[in-house]
Design a protein around this nucleic acid. Structure first.
Lengths: 217, 217
DNA sequence: TTCAGTTGTTAACATTTAGTAAACATAAAA
DNA sequence: TTTTATGTTTACTAAATGTTAACAACTGAA
């Protein structure tokens, strides 16, 4: 969170760059903020660097680059053409948190779950994502525990070795490691107490690929 | 459940942040709540921290972050409503990502790491947090794998069973399960190939408690 | 290359603003 | 009653800001 002055300076910086294409000199900032000394500017700039809101090159004139807006959104010079579908500009996204997968229900059936979870975009995959609360211990040896939150990319194509959410026979949903061998698909648990099952191609629908995982203690 | 005043304060905090982008000073809160003294504010803020409704940075001006709404819902500024108000993004905090712990270096020694990571506030503990890249496999049976990102609350007191970052003999830093027995402290790995070591009270300094964990595939 | 002007960096100090703490009083809740 | 939440005052510490001045690094022209 920025202080008042830091916020003012950052706003001016962004405006100046968008207007003129160059970052302002300390003098110019002084004038704009009604100060008499560059020195204070230096300190405020320092503060903004520490807080990760700007990047600057040392000992270089006019070399301050904004990294975030005062409100914390990632700064991007790329102007999304006015009609921006992609909120490319936000650090976090709210995605639906589906409950624990109840056996016997395809994902779609529980998409009603109206709980959401806040996730940094860096956690997400490229496609549409949803979150899932892990039920059971079948993937324990892969470091996936009961009640972990799994973030699933529903549009990604699985490759061998990926951990996927699979719908079996339009009935059961489970989290397993995916391995395709010719036409048949193996779903491997990561728990010595569970067996690998192999299915014909028509019996499995992959509902998404595990992208990231989050656990709260 | 919050008290009246706590609830009022939290509401004002949220409103102020959404309006102006910065959290209010204690003085400003006083005015808003019709009080004559900052001191009471301080106490109420403490209460909100204890109840885990906000996060604050100690001794920093204007650095209170809401974590939940008064009703207990996770705080999120992202409005998925149609009205595309510019969403703020203050529900994340940038915390330092320390490199892998090199054996032989206390945490402080690597705090120079100038990488930062954006984390949703709800992932954080109550105290000052930092992130750590896990090195090694000593906690593998607790589902903590190589290269996972661990988020550590550096101010929380460990209780038995917590997973902590421990500094041994001012030299080695490791992630282990903490167990105190009388005066001595046991650091238990979660890997059958490693042994539990027991130390005298003066040999161990706990550098923080594991709060949450994140893994990217 | 040298030199002068511009701009950024640092230290020192003063001032204001902001957060922390203890002590005491009061009122409401358990 | 005992506990908890609250209101207030006072005092203190720390952070943020404003200012001056000397100096270092960079730039472009002579």
């Amino acid at each position: 969170m920025l202080t008042i002055k830091q916020s003012q300076l950052l706003n001016y910086l962004i405006k100046k760059i968008e207007d003129s294409g160059t970052s302002p000199s300390y003098e110019e900032i002084c004038i704009h903020l009604n100060l008499k000394s560059k020195s204070g500017i230096h300190r405020i700039v320092q503060g903004l660097v520490e807080r990760d809101y700007i990047i600057k090159l040392n000992n270089k004139a006019r070399s301050i680059y904004p990294k975030k807006y005062p409100n914390g959104k990632i700064y991007s010079t790329l102007k999304q053409d006015q009609d921006n579908e992609e909120p490319n500009n936000i650090n976090t996204l709210s995605i639906p948190l589906l409950g624990k997968i109840a056996a016997g229900l395809p994902i779609e059936a529980i998409e009603t779950a109206n709980e959401n979870i806040e996730v940094p975009i860096s956690f997400l995959g490229k496609g549409k994502c949803y979150a899932l609360k892990v039920d059971g211990d079948s993937m324990i040896e892969a470091g996936i525990l009961q009640d972990d939150i799994a973030i699933i990319d529903s549009e990604r194509q699985p490759t061998n070795g990926d951990i996927v959410v699979a719908l079996i026979d339009e009935e059961d949903v489970t989290l397993k490691r995916f391995r395709k061998n010719g036409e048949s698909i193996a779903l491997e648990p990561a728990n010595i107490n569970y067996k690998t099952y192999i299915y014909g191609p028509n019996r499995i629908k992959v509902q998404g690929v595990l992208t990231s995982l989050y656990r709260h203690y």
